[in-house]
Design a protein around this nucleic acid. Structure first.
Length: 923
RNA sequence: GCCGGAGUGGCGGAAUGGUAGACGCGCACGACUCAAAAUCGUGUCUCGCAAGGGGUGGAGGUUCGAGUCCUCUCUCCGGCACCA
């Protein structure tokens, strides 16, 4: 009975498909569909479960598309340059290409055993000279258009291994291999000017269908921001907050900028890439003019400004920037408040039509240092509790005003000024006792009581309020009648923090009372600054001092400089080396082969040296999707016709971890090739989605070192490829990380067995009844829709529900069974093909048209209506669909068990939502 | 610190503002069996004998009705991080 056995069935069909090649893209007249997954790095560990997740998902999409009438391209290849093969070569002396080819063989076998229908005739391999010839060729195009250049950059250097390390080889500042502390070294490197494309890489995201989190992550990475370039004397600074310029009390510059300016080394090292680094700085002695205030301000060299963002110089505004604040506190530099928050009192808002009256005020926080208690005033005629407060008179400083108010309102006279709590705020409220709308700029000042000595206060004041002493904890629960109470208490408890938000300008001469947003450009204009856009994105360091990569096709000649290798001489082949160790000065191992390095200059014919750096392993993957269109072309990287036919990629699925590097790099290459007229679209991918990580059973990351890696082969052997595929689709939402669960695999396996057994129930009768037919059409719709929205888990669930229902029946019609198989076939291609054959069908189920649903057959005859009384479910009712409201009301009242809820009550209202709910509201 | 995402049974997870827990795993009981496995059936949020009550991290709010919308808050995950 239970004779479902994938062991023979799966290899059998794989062999047949291998021979009939149903998966090859034809380039026919049918509409094209290009489905793409990230090609794997063929590591020694073999395929992992994450590959299966992504590849199966797109396999399902690709199969569905084919059956919807598309000519589908779903290719695969190998991103085969990379460190593991090279490190293995250093250890064993085995050439990386041998290791790589062996691994590719394994991957191929594994992928085929999963029944994924890749177009194997279009395989690409980035390490194949026929492929990397064109990677080199594209590099020469970059060079030709001035987008590849040499520059000195800082690299990670392991002094023991004498090797330049990739960032991923540096683990908490140490060499991953030998544990030696990594040093920073300057080195001349090839760069690609991706920053020239920053604006378009950002803006063009508007027009592509990437999931929001992908777009967001790319935008953050590109880091567009607008701001002003403003000259402080000879120093030009960049700021996004020109509205705070009146508070710029010094200028901070990066060490290299200081050196350039003064020729001196101040012993400060720029260290902007380490977290929680203590801020350090030295006064250069230079003074420059703040163009807004006209005052001279000091110039400091600091370690927290980096030379390569903006201009390497900033105007420091301690009152409104956390970093400047921290630095100014440490070195005792001046702080000036120029932007204050607007705090409208929501419980007591401005009354429209009433006069608006402005005042400068103070709020005095009077503390008894003995017990830490604070004075509150409890007002007698108004429901208010406040601190001591009042207006600042002409010629008064805030402190003097505060002392006067304290004396008037409390009688205390011996007070010690402690500190200003923070910058003033603008509160906006309706002053009921004066019948006016108040806009107040209020300083908060903390005083300690020196002693109890106090004068008698006036009768008038006494009548107004009582004095209450409250400790800080209680303060939080007192409902203080200040809009800014929360801010003030925070400043009192946690100390001052700079106000970095936008707000209203003060102390800014003619710009006072403007809003920040408004003031930014006005001030920039006034100081003759320039409004500019900046990006965080940096140019791409394109050199690697390694062996296993594409040689950079450039020759250096003493006379002619850097000369591109002529196109006819491409590819520059990776030479055989005796050892894979780096060169004596950390160069690539290629530097050790003098007969390869020494060559002649293509320009002047004199002696010259080859570039020994190779490309990063991001190079080959930056354009592989183009090569798939025309993988065997020997004269072009891909023909224009082929590109025009297949590009753009309609749907590209891959890992979230490639969002910022690979995805951005490949968009950049594609845009460049578009600009020089070699590819047809500016954006390579129409739609991009990401699958979630598959974690190990305990929720940790799978890793070789933890020994918790699940090998797909084991699962295929034990359960079959179809079960593995269905399981991975069913396990949870596709875009979320999820833990592997061996125990849960039996569910999908049982489901497939159940489908398998259904064949016993087939007869040729019509579909049994209307409900069965509805379920069929519902399932067709649900599965079709869910595949499009990557909701594979609920698609499988819908198939299970239908299967369970069919299984309970005596007999199943042929139409139902065939439809079920068709829907299931992209998920479980082998067993459905087998069952299809058993049915006596000619040809492959995978060539059958995708099932369509009939909209008219989706609507149910009967609907369950929920009856609520006062929002609580009290009964339910099966009614013909689309019963009218009036009828529903009637039926609801008559339905059993409802009357008792209505006894002794008056019905106030009916809420009737047809086909859903009747809610009866009573008194 | 900043920017995202997520918190629902024993577990993975469902749920256009309309019966919370679909589907699957696990578990319990039953059928079949000499027995077991497999399979099938029934049950499985929680308190309660029941009638009913409570329940989607927590506190408020909007609504006839909130897992879903709004405000605040806690926790976890991801990304960026002295970016001016």
């Amino acid at each position: 009975m239970n004779d479902y056995d994938p062991k023979d069935m799966e290899p059998k069909w794989q062999k047949i498909w291998e021979e009939t090649k149903p998966y090859e893209a034809k380039g026919s007249d049918k509409p094209k569909y290009y489905a793409l997954v990230e090609f794997p790095y063929p590591s020694g560990e073999g395929l992992h479960t994450g590959h299966v997740r992504s590849y199966t998902a797109m396999d399902i999409v690709a199969r569905k598309r084919r059956r919807e009438g598309f000519d589908v391209l779903y290719p695969i290849g190998w991103d085969a340059f990379g460190l593991p093969a090279e490190n293995y070569a250093i250890k064993t002396g085995i050439h990386p290409s041998i290791t790589t080819q062996k691994n590719i063989e394994t991957y191929r076998k594994q992928l085929k055993a999963l029944g994924i229908w890749f177009d194997w005739s279009r395989e690409v391999d980035t390490t194949d000279p026929k492929y990397y010839k064109w990677t080199q060729w594209i590099f020469l195009k970059f060079l030709e258009h001035g987008l590849a250049y040499k520059a000195k950059t800082v690299v990670n250097w392991c002094p023991k291994d004498k090797i330049v390390l990739a960032n991923e080889e540096v683990v908490s500042g140490k060499c991953e291999r030998c544990g030696t502390e990594v040093e920073k070294r300057e080195k001349e490197q090839w760069m690609l000017a991706i920053t020239k494309y920053a604006e378009r890489l950002d803006k063009d995201l508007d027009d592509v269908d990437y999931s929001e989190r992908i777009k967001l992550q790319q935008r953050n990475w590109i880091g567009r921001s607008e701001g002003a370039l403003i000259k402080f004397g000879e120093i030009e600074i960049f700021t996004t907050r020109p509205d705070t310029i009146f508070g710029a009390t010094f200028v901070a510059i990066a060490p290299s900028v200081a050196k350039r300016l003064t020729g001196k080394d101040f012993g400060i090292v720029s260290d902007t890439d380490r977290e929680n680094k203590e801020k350090l700085g030295v006064d250069t002695g230079l003074r420059v003019r703040n163009p807004a205030t006209g005052e001279d301000v000091p110039v400091w060299v600091v370690n927290y400004v980096s030379a390569d963002y903006g201009t390497g110089a900033i105007m420091a505004v301690p009152a409104h920037d956390v970093r400047d604040f921290e630095f100014a506190e440490k070195y005792g530099l001046q702080k000036k408040y120029v932007v204050i928050p607007r705090i409208p009192d929501l419980t007591n808002p401005h009354v429209p039509g009433k006069e608006i009256v402005f005042r400068n005020g103070v709020m005095a926080i009077v503390r008894n240092p003995k017990d830490g208690k604070i004075i509150n005033l409890k007002w007698k005629k108004q429901p208010w509790t406040t601190f001591v407060m009042g207006g600042i008179e002409e010629d008064e400083s805030p402190e003097v005003a505060a002392r006067r108010e304290i004396h008037e309102e409390t009688g205390y006279k011996n007070l010690k000024f402690v500190r200003i709590l923070g910058g003033p705020v603008q509160s906006e409220f309706f002053a009921a006792h004066k019948d006016l709308n108040r806009v107040a700029h209020t300083w908060q000042i903390l005083f300690d009581l020196e002693n109890d000595e106090k004068d008698e206060i006036g009768e008038e004041e006494k009548e107004m309020h009582d004095i209450v002493w409250v400790d800080v904890e209680e303060l939080k629960s007192v409902r203080l009648s200040h809009a800014e109470a929360e801010l003030v208490i925070d400043r009192l408890v946690n100390g001052e923090k700079p106000y970095t938000g936008e707000g209203i300008l003060i102390n800014s001469e003619k710009f006072n009372c403007l809003e920040s947003a408004d003031a930014k450009k006005k001030i920039t204009d006034a100081v003759e600054g320039k409004w500019v856009t900046k990006y965080k994105l940096r140019d791409w360091i394109f050199s690697r001092q390694r062996y296993w990569g594409e040689p950079i096709p450039v020759i250096h000649c003493e006379k002619c400089g850097y000369v591109p290798v002529p196109e006819a001489d491409l590819p520059v082949l990776l030479p055989e080396v005796a050892a894979y160790q780096p060169g004596p000065d950390g160069e690539s191992p290629l530097a050790n082969i003098s007969e390869w390095v020494n060559t002649t200059c293509p320009k002047c014919g004199g002696s010259a040296k080859r570039e020994t750096d190779v490309m990063p392993n991001w190079a080959g993957s930056s354009w592989y999707f183009l090569r798939y269109a025309d993988p065997h072309n020997n004269t072009e990287f891909a023909s224009k016709e082929a590109l025009k036919h297949w590009m753009p990629v309609d749907w590209y699925n891959g890992g979230m971890e490639h969002t910022t590097l690979h995805l951005l790099y490949s968009r950049f290459w594609n845009k460049f090739l578009f600009d020089i007229g070699l590819v047809p679209q500016s954006e390579p991918y129409t739609r991009r989605t990401s699958h979630g990580l598959i974690l190990a059973e305990g929720g940790e990351k799978m890793s070789k070192s933890k020994g918790n890696v699940v090998n797909p082969d084991t699962i295929v052997n034990q359960f079959g490829a179809d079960t593995l595929r269905v399981y991975e689709m069913f396990m949870g939402p596709f875009d979320q990380a999820i833990a592997w669960s061996e125990a849960s695999l039996v569910g999908p396996r049982r489901f497939l067995e159940k489908v398998w057994r259904l064949k016993e129930k087939i007869n040729n009768k019509e579909i049994e009844n209307k409900n069965a037919e509805i379920l069929m059409h519902e399932t067709v719709k649900k599965v079709s829709d869910d595949i499009e929205s990557l909701a594979f888990n609920t698609a499988v669930s819908a198939l299970m529900i239908w299967t369970n229902s069919l299984e309970k029946r005596e007999a199943v019609s042929e139409e139902e069974f065939e439809t079920l198989l068709k829907l299931l076939s992209p998920f479980a291609p082998h067993m459905t093909e087998e069952l299809w054959e058993n049915l006596g069908q000619k040809g492959s189920i995978h060539e059958e048209a995708w099932p369509a649903f009939d909209k008219a057959k989706l609507s149910k005859k009967e609907t369950v209506i929920v009856i609520q009384v006062n929002g609580k479910v009290r009964a339910s009712l099966t009614t013909p669909s689309d019963t009218t409201e009036v009828k529903l009301k009637e039926m609801a009242l008559q339905s059993p068990g409802i009357q008792k809820w209505l006894e002794g009550r008056q019905i106030v209202k009916f809420i009737v939502i047809p086909n859903r709910v009747v809610n009866i509201l009573t008194t």
